[in-house]
Design a protein around this nucleic acid. Structure first.
Lengths: 178, 178
DNA sequence: CTCTGCTTTCAAAACGTTTTGAACGCAAGG
DNA sequence: CCTTGCGTTCAAAACGTTTTGAAAGCAGAG
C-alpha cells in the first residue's frame, strides 16, 4: 500500500485508540474500530488480529464489546464460515449510544446520591448540636453546588443524546454558537 | 461526629473520587479535594493523610497536582510550620481550568493531525494507482467525519471555558447541528 | 457421527499504575 | 552550630488491568 495511505491509516487508528481511552474504553477497542472504519470491506477476526498484531482472543473479546456498544456490526458473507465485521460509520450514532447508556446513568446516580444527602441533612437537623448544625449547613451548600454541576451535565447530555436521528456531517462543519 | 454528617461526607468524598477518575485524574486527588471541600477550615498534610488513611508521601504528591490544576490552594496559618490547604470551592472555575488546559489541547492536536491527513491525501493523489485513489477518497470521507466531530467538541469546550462566572446553560444547549 | 476450521473462554503471565515508607532535604528555633 | 519537625522524593512492593495462547466449544460439510 502507498506510504501516504499507510501513514493516514496509522495515525487515525492510533487517534481512535486515544479517543476510546478518553471515553473509558480500552485502547484496543478504539483501534479495532478505527481499522474497521478505514476498510471499505468487512474484516474477519483474523484480518483484525493480523492487522493490529494482537491475539485472536483479544480481538474476539473486544469485538463483542464493540458490538454491545453499537460501534460495529456483524456482516454475513455468503459462502464464508468466518465472522465479518464493519464499523458503524455514523459517528453521532456511536456517541449517542455511549453517552445515552453509560454517561447518563452515571449522572443519574450522582444526582440521586446528592439528593439523598440533602434529605438526610435536613432530616437530621433537629437532633444535631449547634456546632454540628453549622457544619450541616456548610455541607448543604457544597452539596447543592455539586447538584448544580450535575444538573448542567444532565442537560448537556440530554441535548446531545436527544439530537436528531441522522446527522449530516458536512453540515456539522458549519456549526454555530449563538 | 454525627453519623449523618459522616455518611454525607463519605459519599461525597467517594463520589468526587469517581468524578476525578472520570476526568482522568487519580481517585486520591478527587478524595483529597472532597475532603478539603467539606472542611470549613484548612487542613494539613497530616490531617489529610489521617482522614483518608493514605500515606503522607501520597498526600504530598497529589496535593501538588491539585494545586497545579487550580483545585486547591495553600493557606498560610500564622505561627504554624505546617502547610495548610483549602479547596478551590468555585466548581466552575475548576472545570474551566481542567477543560481549558487539558481537553482543549487534546482536541487541538487531534484536529491538527486530521488536517495533516487531509493534506497528505490530497497531495498524494497524483502518484496513486486508480485503486489506491479510490481508497484515498474513502479515507478522506472518514477523516472529514472525524474532523466534524472534533470541531463540535472544540466549540463545546470553548463555550464552557469561555463562559463567565456561572455557565450560561442556554449556551450549552444551543450548540446545534444544522 | 466425525472431521475441520473457526470462535470463545479463561487462567496465567506480562505489563502498567499506584501506594508505601524509609531516607533525604530543608528551614526555624534553641 | 545542632536539633527538631516538617515536606518531598523515589525505589520497591502491592495492586489492578490487559494480553496471551492453549484448550474447549461449536457449527457446517461430508
Amino acid at each position: 500500500m502507498h506510504k501516504t495511505l499507510a501513514a493516514v491509516n496509522d495515525s487515525t487508528v492510533a487517534g481512535l485508540g486515544r479517543l476510546a481511552r478518553f471515553f473509558g474504553f480500552s485502547d484496543v477497542m478504539g483501534r479495532l474500530y478505527g481499522t474497521l472504519l478505514l476498510n471499505p470491506e468487512p474484516l474477519s477476526l483474523d484480518d483484525l488480529a493480523d492487522g493490529l498484531k494482537i491475539s485472536k482472543g483479544s480481538v474476539s473479546m473486544n469485538m463483542r464489546d464493540l458490538e454491545r456498544w453499537g460501534m460495529a456490526k456483524e456482516v454475513w458473507m455468503r459462502g464464508e464460515r468466518k465472522k465479518y465485521y464493519t464499523a458503524e460509520s455514523d459517528l453521532w450514532q456511536v456517541i449517542r449510544n455511549v453517552l445515552g447508556s453509560r454517561e447518563q446513568r452515571e449522572v443519574q446516580v450522582a444526582l440521586h446520591v446528592l439528593g439523598d444527602s440533602v434529605e438526610k441533612l435536613k432530616a437530621a437537623e433537629a437532633e444535631l448540636t449547634p456546632e454540628e448544625r453549622e457544619l450541616a449547613r456548610y455541607y448543604l451548600d457544597r452539596v447543592v453546588d455539586l447538584q448544580a454541576f450535575f444538573k448542567v451535565a444532565q442537560m448537556a447530555l440530554e441535548t446531545v443524546v436527544g439530537s436528531g436521528e441522522s446527522l449530516d456531517f458536512d453540515a456539522v462543519t458549519r456549526i454555530e454558537i449563538e
